[in-house]
Simulated assay, not measured.
Amino acid sequence: MPDAPRFLTLADVAEVLNTSSAQVYALVRRGELPAIKIGGRGQWRVEASVLEEFITKMYADTKAFVAEHPFLDNETDAVDL
């Protein structure tokens, strides 16, 4: 038996991402985080490997965002309002 479970609950995912279960549910419902719905009560599960792929993608997306939107130093590059 493996050390870590193959599938995680939304609460488990929320703990890994240090966010709320509601936020994870929103990610799943928007299709950003692939998950499966199982059982008669329709409980959501996220495969651990899919979560790792999601995290890797978020790092890549963030890197691209930072490259496209460089930080501007407030003292030299700020626009007077």
Rank of each mutant, 00 (worst) to 15 (best):
L81A: 06
R41L: 05
F71K: 10
V50I: 11
V24W: 04
Q43M: 07
S20T: 13
V50T: 10
F71V: 11
E52K: 09
R29W: 03
D77P: 09
R30G: 04
K57H: 10
W44L: 02
T56I: 09
E68A: 07
E32V: 05
I55W: 05
E52C: 03
S21F: 11
S21M: 10
L17E: 04
D61H: 15
V46S: 03
G42F: 05
F65H: 08
D73V: 02
Q23A: 15
Q43S: 07
S49H: 12
I38M: 10
A60Q: 15
R45K: 02
K63D: 15
F54T: 04
L17G: 01
W44Y: 08
Q43Y: 05
V28H: 02
E32G: 07
T19S: 04
N74H: 10
Q23M: 14
T76Y: 10
A35H: 02
K57F: 10
L27P: 01
R30D: 06
A35Y: 01
Y59P: 10
L81H: 07
K37P: 07
E53M: 02
V16G: 00
A78I: 12
V28K: 04
S21T: 14
I38D: 09
A78R: 10
V66Y: 10
G42R: 05
D77F: 10
F65C: 09
E52P: 02
E32Q: 08
M58A: 11
Y59L: 12
V46P: 00
